[in-house]
């Protein structure tokens, strides 16, 4: 309970200080608007904000789901078929060493300025984050536990289902947690490059139109969404991976 109090008190304190500084020194809006002004703007522009949020969240969650599923499937396949791992792992590591944003122009070229290109980029970003963690988790299972299952007559598939996947869940959840933030960042950055709709597009356009308050409002909405989503993943982790 005490932890909850601190985790609320911290951000509140920052906001209060921020508000105070902006008012006391009369900081102009184009440098830094006050939190209260941003909140008011979010309410005033709520239709636009919700519209953008819906698009960005859709791109981020679809990419997240596809990327995480692919990553888990590949990690499991690598453990089940070491030969596949020997061929596939170096290729994945090489791909992963290129920052995702570098693929953005290509993604726009291939999938257009609509949500397709954002989903593709999020898929890649999430996929690597989840893959690295899942692969590590599946691999570092206690050998004696695996041997015990073998002595009961369990083949590779049974060992995977009854031991490796549950044992790797803490690592997989870590990957899924990191991936939340990544997916929002990538979706928003990609929208800034080219998009018809979305929080990234709103931020970009508002800055172009010198409407800094609106840009800040979109930023606030994006962070709130990101935090809420992170909270959900955290809750699932605590609820279902209780033994870590």
């Amino acid at each position: 309970m005490r932890g909850h109090v601190y985790s609320v008190a911290g951000p509140l304190g920052v906001f209060a200080l921020w508000e105070l500084v902006v008012r006391a020194f009369g900081v102009p809006v184009y440098v830094l608007p006050a939190p209260s002004a941003i909140a008011k703007k979010v309410v005033a522009d709520s239709a636009l904000m919700l519209d953008g949020l819906a698009m960005t969240l859709m791109e981020a969650t679809v990419g997240y789901a596809v990327g995480a599923t692919l990553a888990l499937a590949i990690a499991i396949a690598f453990i089940l078929w070491p030969r596949l791992e020997r061929v596939g792992l170096p290729a994945l590591v090489a791909l992963n060493s290129v920052p995702v944003v570098a693929f953005a122009p290509v993604a726009l070229l291939w999938f257009g300025s609509g949500p397709g290109s954002k989903i593709a980029l999020v898929t890649i970003a999430v996929g690597f984050a989840v893959f690295v963690n899942a692969h590590q988790g599946l691999r570092s299972v206690d050998e004696s536990a695996a041997n015990l299952l073998r002595s009961f007559g369990a083949g590779p598939l049974r060992q995977m289902a009854m031991l490796r996947i549950p044992a790797a869940l803490p690592a997989i959840m870590n990957g899924l947690r990191v991936a939340v933030v990544r997916s929002m960042i990538v979706a928003i950055v990609a929208e800034m490059l080219a998009a018809f709709k979305g929080l990234g597009a709103t931020i970009f356009e508002s800055t172009q139109q010198i409407d800094f308050l609106r840009a800040w409002a979109a930023i606030a909405v994006a962070s709130a969404a990101s935090m809420a989503w992170y909270g959900v993943v955290n809750w699932i982790d605590r609820r279902y991976v209780f033994w870590r």
């Binding site: 206690d142 004696s144 041997n147 015990l148 031991l163 869940l169 033994w243």
Partner: peptide, 9 residues
């Protein structure tokens, strides 16, 4: 085996 190796989940 020596260790109980009970699965915590």
């Amino acid at each position: 085996p020596q260790r109980d190796l009970l699965l915590p989940w």
